[in-house]
């Protein structure tokens, strides 16, 4: 490794690299990870700005036109109600990506706060908090999410509430994903809190919260980022799973999960209805997983020795 650094920067070997610069250099050399990043960027642009450019509405039903194979007006064909599939995939992408990102953010906030508190204070509190995590792990949470969705569905029907299921998905999926994050953060904080720089911060009178948020969490950020990157595809998968079962995003909205479910019903005659949404979901998950792996190789000191 030293050899590489020298050859990259002849004459300035004394200049150090920060962890982040170093990680970025590693990541840049990982071609698959960079390709994944490009794919994800393209998908994001496609989903966010695409609908303005296709010239079709995602929910404009045209029964006279009906279901058509991919053609020059509709690059990915139309569905049974004559809606442009590409526009629907773009809208579905917005929803799927939004669920992935927001639910991950929720799990990130809960997990980091919880794990850091447990790890920093240690002792009895830590024991108690981690036992709770153990208990939560033993619960088949997908069942609880399903029951929760049915519960809120009932409330909506009775009181005429107008909440989108999607907000519920943000919270429900985020709330079940924080457990591993809490464990990772706790482990990191536990090993960091005895270090000299924390002692130094103590001695100049920094408060506990200040130490946790200013000193411990930033130093544990590597594994946290890696795990978050891998949480996004996991959450997107769960959203698609729930929507596939008809419990997630509701019509006329569409996510990739509902599009796949609709496509699966019609695929014997109109295979493109499942092939395109499946392709988009698969490509997104594939890229996110590769990027997550690349980030781990770049950031996680444990796998660095290879």
């Amino acid at each position: 490794m030293t050899e590489r650094m020298k050859s990259d920067h002849p004459g300035q070997a004394e200049k150090g690299f920060s962890l982040w610069q170093d990680a970025w250099r590693r990541l840049k050399r990982n071609r698959m990870a960079m390709a994944s990043m490009a794919v994800l960027g393209a998908l994001l642009l496609f989903s966010v700005f695409g609908p303005f450019l296709t010239g079709h509405d995602f929910d404009a039903i045209d029964l006279d036109y009906g279901v058509r194979e991919p053609n020059f007006q509709h690059f990915m064909g139309t569905d049974l109600q004559g809606r442009d599939l590409m526009t629907r995939i773009m809208y579905g992408g917005r929803l799927s990506l939004a669920v992935g990102l927001v639910a991950t953010l929720v799990s990130f906030l809960i997990g980091v706060a919880y794990g850091a508190t447990a790890g920093y204070f240690g002792g009895k509190l830590d024991n108690l908090m981690m036992r709770f995590v153990d208990i939560m792990y033993a619960i088949p949470y997908m069942f609880l999410v399903i029951i929760l969705l049915v519960f809120v569905d009932g409330l909506k029907a009775k009181y005429g509430w107008e909440i989108d299921t999607i907000y519920l998905l943000f919270i429900a999926l985020g709330a079940v994903q924080w457990l591993t994050m809490a464990r990772i953060v706790r482990g990191q904080v536990l090993s960091l809190r005895k270090k000299e720089f924390v002692e130094a911060a103590h001695s100049i009178g920094v408060s506990s919260m200040g130490i946790i948020f200013r000193h411990l969490i930033p130093n544990a950020l590597g594994p946290i980022i890696v795990y978050s990157t891998l949480t996004v595809p996991a959450v997107m998968l769960e959203e698609a799973f729930l929507s596939f079962l008809g419990l997630g995003v509701q019509a006329p909205q569409a996510s990739w999960g509902t599009l796949i479910a609709d496509g699966a019903r019609a695929m014997s005659v109109y295979p493109w209805l499942i092939v395109f949404p499946g392709l988009f979901l698969g490509a997104t998950l594939f890229s996110l997983n590769f990027l997550g792996d690349g980030l781990r190789d770049a950031l996680d000191p444990q796998t660095r020795k290879v």
């Binding site: 698609a240 596939f244 999960g257 479910a261 695929m267 014997s268 499946g278 998950l285 594939f286």
Partner: peptide
């Protein structure tokens, strides 16, 4: 393996049916 991790079973299932059954 990476491909396998990224294809959800509710996409794989219908696709297998499409190819091997239909």
């Amino acid at each position: 393996a990476m491909l396998g991790v990224s294809i959800p079973n509710f996409v794989l299932g219908p696709l297998l049916v499409l190819v091997f059954s239909l």
